[in-house]
């Protein structure tokens, strides 16, 4: 028989969906800013493999000559990005939801098994609760990255007033590189994340909107779960 299994709390869902457009706007406005001094390349042993970014990229995203506009958007939406992150962070700590999120002792070993399983190399996946080991690592990393974006952002934004933050980030230039690299990280995360969500299917996706999954369970298991209602929270 079908039963409703609670998965994501309303604050988790809210912060997730609020973050999505905000981060999109931050990346877009960040590109408008980066455009003005687009000096980064991917160079190994003296060979430049890639220049961030080729002209076609700017043409495609309609980016040229919009530095002032980019800064104005970036310095407004940074507030929403940060506040939303703070809300998520404290909620996750206080509610205890972090227990389902942060990597455990075995997570790094198991994440490898999850990866092999997802690539259809390994037949079984390790047992999991709300998140599997790879998810634990990825979702915790993305929170740390969000924190990193705020810190490195402050380091570039006010390098004199917050000189100690700039120092902590390895100086102005390194902070700017980190800030940029984190953005590439988000894009990479996004691609994998969307792919995995598509593969995981409707029931999983719906839970990020509605909060629950529908599972088939036998009545006697239901009784067991009722006796132990905290198992999935």
């Amino acid at each position: 028989m079908k039963i409703i299994k609670e998965k994501h709390s309303v604050i988790t869902r809210w912060t997730h969906w609020v973050n999505f457009p905000i981060l999109t706007i931050m990346i877009w406005s960040g590109m408008l800013i980066y455009w003005a001094s687009d000096t980064y390349t991917f160079t190994l042993f003296g060979h430049t493999f890639f220049h961030f970014f080729p002209d076609s990229f700017y043409k495609f995203f309609n980016i040229p000559a919009r530095l002032a506009e980019g800064m104005a958007f970036h310095f407004l939406f940074m507030w929403f990005f940060t506040l939303n992150g703070i809300l998520y962070f404290f909620y996750t700590i206080i509610s205890g939801a972090w227990r389902e999120l942060v990597p455990q002792k075995n997570s790094f070993k198991e994440a490898w098994q999850v990866l092999l399983h997802d690539l259809h190399i390994r037949r079984t996946a390790p047992p999991q609760n709300k998140y599997n080991a790879a998810q634990r690592i990825a979702y915790t990393a993305i929170i740390v990255m969000g924190f990193g974006s705020v810190i490195t952002g402050l380091a570039i934004y006010k390098p004199t007033q917050f000189y100690w933050i700039t120092w902590m980030c390895g100086g102005y230039n390194f902070a700017r590189i980190l800030h940029f690299a984190l953005t590439l990280g988000y894009v990479f995360f996004f691609i994998i994340h969307v792919l995995q969500v598509v593969l995981a299917g409707w029931n999983n996706f719906r839970s990020v909107v509605s909060g629950f999954e529908v599972v088939e369970e036998k009545p006697d298991q239901m009784v067991k779960d009722d006796l132990n209602p905290t198992v999935n929270n």
Partner: peptide, 23 residues
């Protein structure tokens, strides 16, 4: 956005000090 820029300046001005020197 101009309003936001001005408000943001007012916020960060709280941290401004002439004792903070550029490196």
């Amino acid at each position: 956005l101009r309003r936001a820029l001005n408000k943001t300046e007012l916020f960060f001005r709280k941290f401004y000090s002439n004792n903070h020197h550029v490196k």
